[in-house]
């Protein structure tokens, strides 16, 4: 039992948290790809800037003497998401829309998104330097320890308050997104445009409006993902830039353009990373009692060494691209 709890603490919880962040990021990337047909690298900067918006708001709220029972990062999240959505719309209007109007190829937009990445990152570093910040400088990070000695475990189940909230908020967002895409007129129009942009235009769908809605969702969910990442670890200017490829991996594994695939892909990559570096010896140690002397387990028995954790996502990405570029889930559109 102790071993199982250890496994849950090390793999299930950290994998779920990581998976949630990847999933929220990947949804934005996959929606932008579905509607605008280009790989939007600057999504990492929507996430990072969103986290900084939330950080500034949290600081301001604390300065105004507002207190809340949950971490301030979550309290200000809705406002930060609105700001991020406006920011994303501004980036589109300023940098991508003029290129689209000229009829530029998707690859030009991809390169433009690199330009945007560099500019936004440069600006963030200009204002905040290269150091790292924490949401928990003034408040404490609550840690729940669920005592499971009744079940024969000597270890408690450990989860922090932000982690718990993160999983709940992600689940709620996914449900909301699902309802939006399947029930609302605009959500269906988004799916229609991702399916067949020409026919969507012919049907009289206001494609410019759909593009705007896409950026609003991408910006808002990006902000959510970035803020959560910053709440789980620390906030720094290259916060999301470092994980943009795992996020792309999640989107591609799920099939670019497919929102549900991105969520599944995000969770898959998150769990894969946690599982790959998990030290199996901790769980299999009881076996040492029955194993012969020469077959005792080594101190660490992980599938890959910890320093290669991020590499797991890259390997999954490359293998997916080679074996099944349309994603592991059956592509719905032909």
């Amino acid at each position: 039992m102790t071993e199982l709890i250890f496994f849950i603490n090390q793999v299930v919880i950290s994998g779920a948290v990581l998976g949630c962040i990847y999933a929220l990021g990947a949804v934005g990337i996959t929606l932008v790809f579905g509607i605008l047909r280009f790989a939007h690298f600057a999504h990492s900067e929507l996430m990072t800037s969103g986290a900084f918006f939330a950080f500034l708001l949290a600081g301001a709220f604390a300065a105004w003497g507002i207190t809340a029972p949950i971490p301030m990062g979550f309290v200000v999240l809705p406002i930060a998401m609105v700001i991020s959505a406006i920011f994303a719309l501004g980036i589109d209007k300023g940098f991508y829309a003029p290129l689209r109007k000229r009829g530029a190829k998707p690859v030009t937009l991809l390169i433009a998104s690199i330009g945007v990445t560099l500019m936004v990152q440069g600006l963030i570093r200009l204002f905040f330097g290269a150091g790292s910040y924490s949401f928990f400088e003034t408040e404490t990070k609550d840690v729940f320890r669920v005592d499971l000695s009744a079940f024969g475990s000597t270890r408690p189940l450990v989860i922090t308050e932000p982690q718990l909230l993160m999983i709940v908020v992600t689940a709620l967002s996914v449900i909301a997104l699902h309802l939006f895409l399947t029930r609302s007129r605009l959500g269906k129009a988004m799916r229609a445009m991702a399916d067949n942009a020409d026919l969507a235009q012919v049907s009289g769908i206001n494609t410019a409006l759909v593009v705007r809605v896409t950026w609003i969702i991408a910006g808002a969910l990006g902000c959510m993902a970035g803020t959560m990442l910053a709440l789980d670890v620390t906030l720094k200017p290259d916060l999301a830039f470092n994980i943009i490829i795992p996020i792309f991996a999640a989107a591609i594994v799920g099939g670019l353009g497919q929102a549900y695939g991105a969520i599944a892909g995000g969770l898959l990559i998150g769990f894969a990373e946690s599982l790959a570096v998990f030290n199996w010896t901790m769980v299999l140690r009881p076996l040492n009692a029955i194993l012969p002397e020469w077959l005792q387990l080594p101190a660490t028995l992980a599938f890959v060494p910890t320093e290669y954790k991020l590499t797991v996502a890259f390997v999954i990405l490359v293998v997916t691209l080679l074996v099944r570029p349309t994603g592991i889930f059956k592509g719905a559109s032909s």
């Binding site: 940098f95 003029p98 290129l99 530029a104 030009t108 390169i111 433009a112 690199i114 330009g115 945007v116 990445t117 560099l118 500019m119 936004v120 990152q121 440069g122 600006l123 570093r125 200009l126 330097g129 290269a130």
Partner: peptide, 21 residues
Amino acid sequence: EARSAQMRVFVLGLVITIALR
């Protein structure tokens, strides 16, 4: 000092954006 060190990333982004446009 620290801020100017970060400027080049911004400048690089600005240059490519202007060039593409």
